[in-house]
Each structure stands twice: as structure tokens, then as C-alpha cells.
Write a protein that binds this DNA or RNA. Sequence first.
DNA 1: AGTAATCCCTGGCAGC
DNA 2: TGCTGCCAGGGATTAC
Length: 295
Amino acid sequence: MPELPEVETIRRGLVKRVLNKTIERVEVRCKRIILRPRPVELERALAHQSIKEIGRRGKFLLFETNDYKLLIHLGMTGQLTFWDKTQKDDNDFFVHPLTGLQKARQHAVDKHTHVSFYFTDGNALHYRDIRQFGKWRLYRPDEFEQAKEFWQLGLEPFSPDYTWKKFLMQFDGRKLKIKSLLLDQSFVAGVGNIYADEALFEAGIHPERLVGSLKDEEKRKLFRAISRVLRRGLKYGGTSFQNYLNATGEAGRNQERLKVYGREGEKCRRCKDAIIRIIVSQRSSHLCPKCQSRR
DNA sequence: AGTAATCCCTGGCAGC
DNA sequence: TGCTGCCAGGGATTAC
């Protein structure tokens, strides 16, 4: 479940390793990942293109080449890892004892490796995605206005766009649970289940509170908490719970610092009561019932 | 229109 | 041991 801090960590790693490289050949093995154009056309279009820029918006990565913009969403289990021709493949996938994570620093193409870029210098970039929830879309710059999945995104947390005034405006007239609003990418882009739960804990807000019931003071706490938990996630290289790995195949370290997510039955770090897990809008939510009251 | 439910997918795990 | 069924969840789609 790569969220903003994980995607940004991957982006930074990729900038160091694949920026300005030229793609010789693209191989698409799983066609459902490629939403546009047709997979064979994407292979053809990206051949001989150079990677000029790698950006990010919310949970999307945006690769810019000479003639195209490539929008990648990693879904639940997408991994984009650089394959270094001077390194040996690490074929021993193993389960991390703490995170249950599948780990491989540099992997050979396996049945989950759905797309590969082979560069002219002999290196490669592999896209591996066990659950196949990731999505790739290729646009010409003049078509990019059609990329509604991009333009519909809400406030960008680490940008000057993330202001208290704009944040507050998003609550107007809405009638849903605060947890659902946090997961809505048109509200604040890049927040997923882990950081939503962490932000609600830090703001002392119960996930099932209706947004209309929140006082400005609580909204203010949430505004700050979102930015704080995302920054912390980024600082520690992302949260590796299931399949997240950075661009060089390494796990993050933020999972050890989480206050509620994945800690069902464990003691609240603040009040020592047990953390519970409930279902809110079909999604699991982790919270401390004492620190996050309903009222 | 805004919100809620359904579906996609695989590996890991509990239960038998 | 090996099978079955369930669960995780982002976002597109469908339903209300």
C-alpha cells in the first residue's frame, strides 16, 4: 500500500538511478496494467525515449520523456525497482519476520514482473505488482488534459497549496465519516489507510465522526497531523507493511513507529489502553478508543 | 450530486 | 499434509 511517503521515497531513488537514461525496449507482460494506449502501442511509443523528469502528485508517479507523459499508480502492491547490471540478482524472496514483507533487493523477472524498461546502457527498471491493482497510462503532452485521474486530485500535502484555508473549505456541506473523507484523493492527495489512521490518532479524532460534527479546533489538529505523519513516514523511508520496497528494493522503517495502524490488541503508546480495529466504509480502521472519543 | 457498495487480484493464513 | 475459504485494500465503476 504505497502512500505518499512511499511513492516519494521511490521517486527520489529513481531520480538518482534512471533520470536521463534512454529506453531501448519496453516489455509489457501483463496487459491489464496498461490502461492507455493499447499495451503494444505503449511498448512502441516508449522505445528510444529518454527519461527527462520524474515527478509525483499524490500517489501518482509522473515520468516525462521526450514525447510523452507516463502516469503510474502503484495500487496496493506495485514495486518499481532499478536493476543494476553490475549487481547479482537476489533470488531469495523471503518473508520479513516483522512486516511479512516479500523482499528482494534486485530481482530477476518473475511471474509478477509485469513491465520492464531495458535501457541502452544495459540496466533495467522492473515493475512488479502481485495483486495487479497498479495502473499505467501514457499521454502525449497535448492529451494530458484528459488525465482526469490526475486533475481531480485534491490538496498536495508538501506543497504551498496545502493551506489551512483550502483544507477547511473541503468540509463544506459534506456528510460522511472523517475516515472516508481522508481516503478520498480529491480531498488531500496521497493519504491512504495507514496514514489516515495515524493522522486521526494524532488529532484525537474517532474515524467514524461525521465531518459536520468536527469543531474547527479538531480540523486544525487534523490539518497539522496529516502533514506531520506524512513527513515522518518520508523521513523513515516509508512504511513497509506488505509489499512496499523503494527503488533499490529496500524496506522502509516507519512501520516500527506507527501508533495505531496494525497494532490491534497492543497498548496505546499514549494511554496504555488496547488499540482496536473496526470497519469503517468497508476499510479497516485502527484506533485507541480512549484517545479518540466519538464526541 | 454526493455517498455507499461492489469488484478487481494474489498470497498468506486459519481451520479442518 | 493439503485443501478451502477468507482477508487485505486503492480506486473505477455501479447503485442508490
